[in-house]
């Protein structure tokens, strides 16, 4: 019995064929290259997102434009006054938002603005920003939130 086994295993090759390994790795590589999004902006404001249950995913990532609202980051862990950041700069004058957004929406009319707002920012500032967005007619917005762990209710 055991002799038979030995014979069989002795005849078959022991090593895994590695010729296709580069191809497999390349496949994985290409997948990650396609799906990757390099972080292009440095956050100048703190955005601790709130949690919510009733959330949807934005499928068309190309349409998304980000806006960050939160207390400005200072040296160390200190934070300052709430500020609005679009792309890589802080917007000093809120009325500039309409021009910035108007230019953006001309390029992509179906643009969705993802609002990444810190949970402690007062809604007054949010309203001011939204009024500006309405002026620029960028009406599709998304309040970015993280998923809440589903509770009993």
């Amino acid at each position: 019995m055991s002799v038979h086994f030995k014979k069989k295993s002795a005849n078959t090759k022991q090593d895994i064929p590695t010729a296709s390994l580069p191809d497999i790795i390349f496949m994985l590589l290409i997948f990650f290259m396609v799906t990757t999004v390099l972080r292009e902006t440095e956050l100048l404001v703190r955005t601790t997102l709130p949690q919510a249950e009733a959330i949807e995913k934005i499928e068309q990532k190309r349409l998304v434009s980000y806006m960050y609202i939160g207390p400005e980051k200072l040296e160390g862990t200190q934070v300052g006054e709430p500020a609005v950041q679009i792309d890589d700069a802080i917007v000093d004058d809120l009325t500039e938002i309409r021009n910035i957004m108007y230019r953006k929406v001309l390029e992509e009319p179906r643009m969705i603005i993802s609002m990444r707002v810190d949970r402690e920012v007062e809604t007054g500032l949010l309203y001011d920003v939204q009024q500006e967005l309405r002026e620029a007619e960028t009406l599709r917005i998304n309040y970015s939130t993280t998923r809440e762990a589903p509770s009993g209710g």
Partner: peptide, 10 residues
């Protein structure tokens, strides 16, 4: 993916 509450402004 970015997820959140979608709203349409008036």
């Amino acid at each position: 993916v970015d997820s959140g509450i979608y709203m349409q402004l008036p």
